[in-house]
Amino acid sequence: CKVCGDVASGFHYGVHACEGCKGFFRRSIQQNIQYKKCLKNENCSIMRMNRNRCQQCRFKKCLSVGMSR
């Protein structure tokens, strides 16, 4: 997965992504979610083991690796 490094389940929203990141991105855009501000200057490292800790940084990384509708 380009977002968290887990095993990708396919090509989702323009990038190779796992089911977790695919679902997270889908919910984020469909529900237009505004995530809580990052407590670490929006510089969190997103990996499989910690991908749920900072939703703002995870969504930012989804966009930075090329995920789009």
Rank of each mutant, 00 (worst) to 15 (best):
C1V: 03
C1R: 08
C1E: 05
K2C: 05
K2D: 06
K2N: 12
V3D: 02
V3K: 01
V3Q: 00
C4T: 05
C4D: 14
C4S: 01
G5C: 02
D6M: 08
D6S: 03
D6K: 01
V7F: 11
V7G: 07
A8G: 05
A8D: 03
A8T: 08
A8W: 08
A8P: 01
H12A: 09
Y13K: 06
Y13G: 05
Y13P: 01
V15N: 00
V15G: 06
V15Q: 03
V15A: 13
V15L: 09
H16A: 10
H16M: 14
H16I: 09
C18W: 03
C18S: 01
C18R: 03
E19A: 05
G23R: 11
F24L: 09
F24V: 02
F24G: 02
F25L: 03
F25C: 04
F25I: 10
R26W: 15
R26Q: 14
R27C: 03
R27E: 14
R27N: 15
R27V: 13
S28L: 03
S28C: 14
S28A: 02
S28M: 09
I29L: 10
I29Q: 08
I29K: 00
I29E: 04
Q31E: 14
Q31F: 13
Q31H: 12
K36P: 10
K36S: 14
C38P: 04
C38T: 02
L39Q: 11
L39T: 11
L39M: 13
K40E: 13
K40M: 12
K40W: 14
N41S: 12
N41V: 07
N41R: 06
E42P: 06
E42H: 09
E42I: 05
E42C: 05
E42D: 12
N43I: 05
N43M: 08
N43E: 13
N43G: 12
C44Y: 10
S45I: 12
S45C: 12
I46W: 03
I46F: 05
I46K: 02
M47N: 14
M47Y: 06
R48W: 12
R48T: 12
R48C: 07
M49V: 13
M49D: 15
N50T: 11
N50F: 11
N50D: 11
N50A: 13
N50K: 08
R51M: 08
N52Q: 10
N52M: 07
R53K: 13
C54T: 03
Q55K: 10
Q55S: 11
Q55P: 13
Q56A: 15
Q56L: 12
Q56N: 14
Q56E: 13
C57K: 04
C57I: 07
C57H: 00
C57G: 01
R58G: 04
F59M: 08
F59L: 14
F59I: 08
F59S: 02
K60S: 09
K60Q: 11
K60G: 07
K61P: 00
C62K: 02
C62W: 02
C62S: 02
L63T: 06
L63A: 11
L63S: 00
L63C: 06
S64F: 06
S64V: 11
V65T: 06
V65C: 05
V65N: 04
V65D: 05
G66F: 05
G66D: 01
G66P: 02
G66S: 09
G66L: 07
M67W: 07
M67Q: 13
S68R: 08
S68D: 12
R69S: 14
R69H: 15
